[in-house]
Design a protein around this nucleic acid. Structure first.
Lengths: 202, 202
DNA sequence: ATTATCATGTTAACACTGCAAACATAATTC
DNA sequence: GAATTATGTTTGCAGTGTTAACATGATAAT
């Protein structure tokens, strides 16, 4: 009993898809609801049947993008099923690579106003998405416990997590935004840093 | 022969000042030329006598903010006139502290579209501002040369610079944007990380 | 000194934006 | 079959960046 084209079959999904594309192509500042609507061949207020506001649509787009990101990180983990340290290094590498390949996601993930809203919302609704970095965080925790077993010296777990995460996060941003200029292959440089023996005490 | 109030004495400076304040108070997304103009008690097109566009004004504001930032970093350097490593650590600390205290500058510095424009512009005009991180970068170079003298092992200078800068940059962003949640004193944690003996091979 | 020019402001108008209200019609429920 | 819901359109408003036409204070040229 398929009603092909009720009005638009599945406008909500298409808005997200075309929105993500628009964001990629024209940048965050040039993103507009009306353009997305036009891309879907629909009136400029139609999106309001599916999203409360512009930020609401952007949030949906961001969640979609987060899925890609999480998938990317999980693939890295699966490469080394039994080696926590290698997992973390590979994830750090994928982390940087992801934002080099999708620089527009940086703004989408971290620096739009909605980012705060996303945090609030998820507290109430979908806990799954609350920490898009769950995978990353867990790997750090695993390394922490492993490391603490090894020696008596108490390494502050928070310090380890922050420095670990901060390093890849910072490198990703510096490279993606081209604030750090380097003649060679950036990803190779990152790989060298992460795989060096002294990387963050690991 | 001072003509107090030709029309406005020094509107350009006031636009930058009030603009910076507006940016601080209402955030990047809520910043508008018309609000700045109103804050200066002037018509909404008056800014166009001093700035080509909205981005042009924002850029001027950003340069102003960069001055504050550079000053902050230089003060850190001056604390340890003869100790390169301590300089770098203190700068890293100030780096993070600055963005914790001025979170709105994160967007202004790194994630607005204008950031790219700023880079282009400075290539042509004011080279001084091209690298707002000159101070930071130089300190890294000094540490590099010092370290390389010590041992024969060749530490890739680029790797050292990227990991060093990336670490503080990433921590600053994670903390300022509250992506990294921690019960204690963030700055104390950062201090611990930077002053730990194994910090980035230094 | 008068005149022309420049600097700095204002007002009017345009296209674009997010958003709300009133309306239309397909789909679903009772 | 009637009432209700879901999804779309049209209309309208306030706010935005930007341009053009105009006014006038300040400065330079003659």
């Amino acid at each position: 009993m398929s009603y092909e084209n009720y009005h638009h079959e599945n406008l909500k999904a298409e808005l997200i898809k075309k929105g993500l594309k628009l964001l990629d192509e024209e940048g965050y500042e040039n993103f507009s609801l009306r353009k997305v609507a036009k891309a879907c061949s629909v009136s400029h207020t139609a999106p309001y049947r599916h999203f409360d506001s512009k930020d609401d649509l952007i949030m949906a787009i961001a969640i979609e993008a987060h899925h890609k990101f999480n998938q990317c990180l999980e693939e890295a983990v699966n490469k080394y099923p039994n080696d926590n340290k290698s997992q973390l290094k590979e994830m750090g590498y994928s982390y940087v690579k992801f934002f080099i390949e999708n620089p527009e996601y940086l703004r989408l993930f971290f620096l739009s106003d909605f980012a705060d809203n996303l945090k609030k919302m998820n507290h109430e609704t979908c806990i799954n998405e609350e920490q898009p970095f769950n995978t990353f965080y867990k790997a750090i925790e695993r390394c922490q416990s492993e490391h603490q077993n090894g020696e008596g010296d108490s390494v502050d777990p928070n310090a380890l997590a922050l420095s670990c995460w901060g390093l890849v996060h910072g490198m990703a941003i510096l490279i993606a935004k081209r604030d750090f200029s380097y003649a060679g292959d950036y990803l190779e440089l990152v790989r060298k840093i992460l795989w060096s023996g002294t990387f963050l005490n690991l």
